[in-house]
Design a protein around this nucleic acid. Sequence first.
DNA 1: GAGTGGTCTAGACCACTGT
DNA 2: CAGTGGTCTAGACCACTCC
Lengths: 263, 263
Amino acid sequence: MATKYDRIAADLREQIVGGTLHPGQQLPPETTLRDHYRVSLVTMRRALDELAAEGLIEKRHGYGTFVRKPRQRVVRDATRHQWEKDRARLSHGERFGTGATERDTGLEMKDLDFRADYAIVPADKESAQIFGVPAGTKLLKRVYRTKPKSEEYPLGLGHSLLVHDVVAKNPDLLDSGNEPWPGGTQAQLYTLGIELGHIKEEIIARPPSASEAEQLGIDSGVSVFDLRKISFDINGRVVEIANTVLAGDRTQLVYTINLDRWQ
Amino acid sequence: MATKYDRIAADLREQIVGGTLHPGQQLPPETTLRDHYRVSLVTMRRALDELAAEGLIEKRHGYGTFVRKPRQRVVRDATRHQWEKDRARLSHGERFGTGATERDTGLEMKDLDFRADYAIVPADKESAQIFGVPAGTKLLKRVYRTKPKSEEYPLGLGHSLLVHDVVAKNPDLLDSGNEPWPGGTQAQLYTLGIELGHIKEEIIARPPSASEAEQLGIDSGVSVFDLRKISFDINGRVVEIANTVLAGDRTQLVYTINLDRWQ
DNA sequence: GAGTGGTCTAGACCACTGT
DNA sequence: CAGTGGTCTAGACCACTCC
């Protein structure tokens, strides 16, 4: 026999996908549901937690439990990198106002809250190894937060590492006041004469830290994508290490692999 | 103040990463831990569930709770597709015994338990749309299970869809008895004169279904990668739709994006 | 202040594992 | 069989949100 909480979750799941419960609709309080299903509160809550992990409902402390609007996932397509590269050398006007995030979401710059914080940090062992520099080398760490004004929570939490002495050749790149830089990082690197040759992305899934769960507005049980992007210039040197944490229930990642023709 | 279960989890986490608790070591029973931390059993269990979701411990019903060996993630590198393509036209002997899974894990065929089940199914709406055929069209559905003999659980659960009338031109491809086919799907398609041009992979993270959790041996709270691979031939026609479900705490996905040179 | 979800308790009983 | 983790209960109290 399945567990009670599984059967209750299945019952509610059916009502949600079947349309008996409408998106946005508030569910009865836990105590009422508990009486209806004749179980203890703990069991009732466990059933609800299951549905929250699936993204079907959303619980708001002190307020209520609601059926989620069919949350369409934001698609993050890796062709964004080629697209960004093609635009890196365009004029300021052509680059202005639309970056890779805007392309993913279909939103414009004015619909987004954007923040960037810069700091200089010493390279830890892992970063140093990837960059091929001694541990402790000065790095420019840039922390990004981008949030659609129409949403309560940001799409992702990101930061980027660059070797300080490399980017310092253009002092404009050390000033976070110049963000958002039209055209993004590849346009910034272009001012240094750097052209990217290839990009490697490594993806893992893991539970969010408490802070990430709070910042991303993640319900208990939802995992995050932890994506590390390593950018190489045309000579194979590592230029940037960027990290992005994306809510696992709101994101779809897409990659296209082109294959060489047979001879 | 943080919650009790968070503080208990933090305490145990520190002991695990700090080395006070060794990999493979059994933790005291929940009741003993409960007495030690002076909390209720429910609270104690919640702390342990947190660590299980992080992959730091592994709970075995009726047996005990153990510190996990630093689980190294299996890397699934998308360059596997090009590698597989390069090998598709090699001789049987050169293809034999090493496929993409073996390449990922470093294991040989003899170290793997392999099973394939074939069935003919009608295309549902979504598959039909992707293939560009009418709904209900006969598809060959192939279900795969691959498990290292040294592990208790499979790496992933996979299935693949092909248009039946296309592959039926080579009757050998309809017989699961011919699996594992040396060189994999691309070698199979080669017998039909089909060459792949590009591959698109779509990735989402979600909680496992009850059946997936059981088959993959996933602890509560761990998400899975749900990866859909769509293979296009050199004319842009969809040839295969393949789906793989991978344990989120045991897998790392890697993609390399090559960028066109500036003119 | 009224109503909601979040944490926590002490205890019972069940289900699974290895010997 | 003994020992373990898994489910479930009835109830207390806390923390948050809105009016």
